[in-house]
Design a protein around this nucleic acid. Structure first.
Lengths: 184, 184
DNA sequence: CAGCGACATTCCATTAGTGACATGTCGAAA
DNA sequence: TTTCGACATGTCACTAATGGAATGTCGCTG
């Protein structure tokens, strides 16, 4: 149930409408905690009913500006440091690896090589983001964004290395088997 | 919708009952694709109805032994190499990092240090698994299990390094601020 | 042979997440 | 001035996942 905390977190930076938050979810938070409108608007309603956020003003087009309340802030801080992060570990990519013996070595190697390429691509994109962000200053405010970005960079680098290593292992086994076959 | 593929994957290694599969989900697949009984039994029923698996025998206690069919195997192979892995990117731990500026530097540092400790712990556990597995031979059959294990080892190592680095950065900023305060 | 623990399945209520549709308003540009 | 795209919210149907309860059987051990 972290969508609510994501919403609270965004509102902790200042009041915003559901529409505003949605934009942030699509842009900044898409890689970490994607959300659809239906979910977000629903959650905002619930948060308001529970008093963790409050409607501060109604703008044009029925726009409702939400503000985080003291209770909301308390809940956010509580969640941040006192609630154990549940490492939601579902990993489609890794699940496939377990069953890769169901396809031939060529296909398996292809899969792993594609993973490596994807990792390189994502890594490059993140580097691009860092370049574009590095120009505008204020170290203190940007720190946690930087730290998150660094996580992405390290993860994609590790993923690339691993996938390349794995592809090489599969290739080595392929070779070995080919050798055996030739020797018979 | 990968639960079905996880089930198919497990059944590709040989017939088993829902109960058997559940054990595997709890033990081997828990870190990659957890599943509850309600989900698994439901999915097995659906898979059977669609002809991807088949009940081969009914044992004592109403036990139903499922076997993967040709269609099931085809679907599994298709999924393995032709369907784009959706990197399910929801990450509770990283989401918190974005909002860590809502707590003081000490608490933030504490959070990151705990992450590092957890990563070390998980890394050690995985090393234990590797040690216990390394004794029984057959390189070829174990390869993909090894590759998956290696992923875990590399990921936890990277996570530890990152968390330590991040904690140090937060500490550095803390120092810097303390210096500023003293200078005033 | 009594009883218990492992085996084994089914069902249900609830929450989280997806995707699409419906509805309407405002502001700027052609 | 009309019209179009961005703004803005709400709702619905559906699937995936969680967690727990209910129900019963088999096989071993005291």
């Amino acid at each position: 149930m972290s969508l609510r905390h994501a919403a609270l977190g965004l509102l902790s930076a200042g009041p915003a409408s559901g529409y505003d938050l949605l934009k942030t979810f699509e842009i900044s938070l898409a890689e970490v905690w994607p959300a659809t409108q239906s979910q977000l608007y629903g959650e905002l309603g619930r948060l308001a009913k529970e008093g963790l956020v409050r409607v501060v003003s109604e703008g044009p087009r029925g726009r409702k500006e939400y503000e985080i309340t003291e209770e909301g802030l308390a809940e956010l801080r509580h969640w941040l440091v006192e609630v154990a992060p549940n490492l939601s570990r579902r990993n489609d990519m890794l699940l496939r690896v377990f069953f890769l013996d169901q396809v031939d070595a060529d296909a398996a190697r292809g899969y792993l090589e594609r993973l490596a390429q994807q990792a390189v691509h994502e890594h490059d994109q993140l580097r691009g983001v860092r370049e574009s962000v590095i120009s505008q200053g204020d170290d203190a405010l940007r720190m946690y964004g930087d730290i998150a970005l660094e996580w992405g960079l390290r993860l994609t680098a590790a993923q690339r290395d691993w996938a390349e290593w794995a592809a090489a292992r599969v290739a080595a086994l392929e070779q070995q088997k080919a050798g055996h076959a030739a020797a018979e």
